[in-house]
C-alpha cells in the first residue's frame, strides 16, 4: 500500500531527525543569545520556529491539523507554505534592519568626519598659536595670546 503524506511524517527516523534537529537549533539559538552573539530581538522568530519544529516532531498530527486549519489538502504542502512564510518574514525583517543600519552608518560616518575636521582645525590653531608665542618670546615682545 502506498504511504500517505501523514504516514511519511510520522516515520520514526524522520521524527527522530526532526526532533534532534529542532532541539539542536533551539539550543544553538539560546547559547548564541546567552553569549551576546545574537540580539534577543532578532532571535525571537528563530526561537518560535525551533519550538514549532519541536512541536511538529513530537506531535506529528499537528501538521495535519495545521493543513486542515489552513484549508490545504496535503499536510506536506501546508508545512512548505509555513516555512516559506517564515523565510519571507525573516528576509523582510532583515531588509528593514539593513535599511535602518545604512542610515545610522551614514549619520555616524558624517559625525566622525565632522569631528576629524574640527580636531584638525583645533590642532592647526594650536600650532599657529604656539608658533606665534615662540616668535614673540624670541623677539622679546609680549605674546598675542
Amino acid at each position: 500500500m502506498e504511504p500517505t503524506d501523514t504516514d511519511i511524517l510520522v516515520l520514526p527516523l524522520a521524527q527522530a531527525l526532526l526532533t534532534a534537529g529542532s532541539v539542536l537549533a533551539l539550543v544553538t539559538v539560546v547559547v548564541l543569545v546567552r553569549r551576546n552573539h545574537l540580539e534577543l530581538r532578532y532571535s525571537l522568530l528563530w526561537l518560535l520556529a525551533c519550538c514549532a519544529g519541536v512541536g511538529a516532531a513530537v506531535y506529528p498530527e499537528s501538521s495535519r491539523i495545521a493543513a486542515h486549519a489552513m484549508g490545504v489538502r496535503f499536510p506536506f504542502n501546508a508545512v512548505f507554505l509555513l516555512v516559506m512564510a517564515f523565510q519571507l518574514a525573516v528576509t523582510f525583517m532583515l531588509t528593514l534592519a539593513a535599511s535602518r543600519s545604512r542610515r545610522d552608518r551614514a549619520r555616524l560616518a558624517y559625525e566622525l568626519a565632522r569631528l576629524r575636521l574640527e580636531l584638525e582645525d583645533l590642532r592647526a590653531r594650536d600650532a599657529a598659536a604656539a608658533t606665534r608665542g615662540a616668535t614673540a618670546a624670541g623677539s622679546g615682545a609680549p605674546s598675542a595670546e
Binding site: R105, A109, Y110, R114
Partner: peptide
C-alpha cells in the same frame, strides 16, 4: 580646501547628505 573625510564609502547620496549636514 576644507575636506570632510568620510571614514567609510557611502556613495554619492551619503556623501552629499554629509555635505548638507555640514
Amino acid at each position: 580646501a576644507t575636506c570632510l573625510d568620510l571614514p567609510v564609502n557611502l556613495g554619492i547620496g551619503g556623501a552629499m547628505q554629509a555635505g548638507f549636514r555640514w
